[in-house]
Write a protein that binds this DNA or RNA. Structure first.
Length: 198
DNA sequence: CCATTAACTGGTC
DNA sequence: GACCAGTTAATGG
């Protein structure tokens, strides 16, 4: 979701800066805001009982988070942590609903956004259920690529570290590293230095 | 530069 | 594949 900044400000959106590794909200907090990223990156994560991190998603410029919780009264299911210096516009939930009333076009777009997220989420879950690490990586990259505009082969840059890919897929870094090499041999992906193109 | 972070390798279970 | 240990390469102040 990407809403015009002027409108966000008009309805009480405020700019907030976070430094690297700062917690924006924690799992279990009451959901009170809509967040839209102006610059930087944010990860949504949880930790399992062994303390192992699982990243649900990594969002960048012009992407939003916290929005699936705007229409229901639930607690955040994940933490949100900035990966680098990040600037967001934060808008209180009630103002957001008010804004939707005044801007039906945004409301419609919101529906489309949530639908698309659900759609790709189901694809993700399907691929993540696979035992084959190649399918897991490919599923993740298909998901990431869905946000991307270009349509050429192997031109989508995966802006993630091997560790982040591991935390997103539930694999170990070493497995990711070895699987990436297999996929290069398969011609599924291409490397430019360490950067992956899919 | 040096220090930190990321990528890689090899071996055990 | 996970998990552990150790090495090398890249990054950034």
């Amino acid at each position: 979701m990407n809403i015009d900044q002027a409108i966000l400000h008009e309805f009480g959106g405020e700019n907030i800066r976070y430094i690297r590794k700062e917690t924006i909200f924690k799992e279990g907090d009451h959901s009170l805001y809509y967040f839209q990223i102006l610059s930087g990156k944010v990860k949504l994560n949880t930790f399992n009982e062994n303390g192992k991190e699982f990243i649900q998603n990594i969002l960048g410029k012009n992407q939003s988070f916290g929005d699936p919780l705007l229409f229901i009264d639930r607690l955040y299911p994940t933490n949100a942590v900035s990966l680098e210096t990040t600037e967001v516009i934060r808008m209180p939930k009630n103002n957001f609903l008010l804004m939707l009333e005044k801007h039906p076009d945004i409301s419609l777009e919101m529906n489309a956004c949530l639908s698309q997220r659900l759609y790709y989420n189901s694809l993700m879950v399907r691929n993540m259920a696979s035992q084959d690490p190649i399918h897991r990586l490919q599923g993740l990259m298909d998901y990431l690529k869905s946000y991307y505009d270009g349509d050429c082969q192997q031109c989508f840059p995966v802006e993630l570290t091997r560790q982040q890919i591991a935390d997103l897929t539930g694999l170990r870094v070493e497995t990711v590293i070895r699987t990436v090499k297999k996929m290069v041999n398969n011609n599924t992906i291409k490397l430019d230095g360490r950067r992956i193109f899919y």
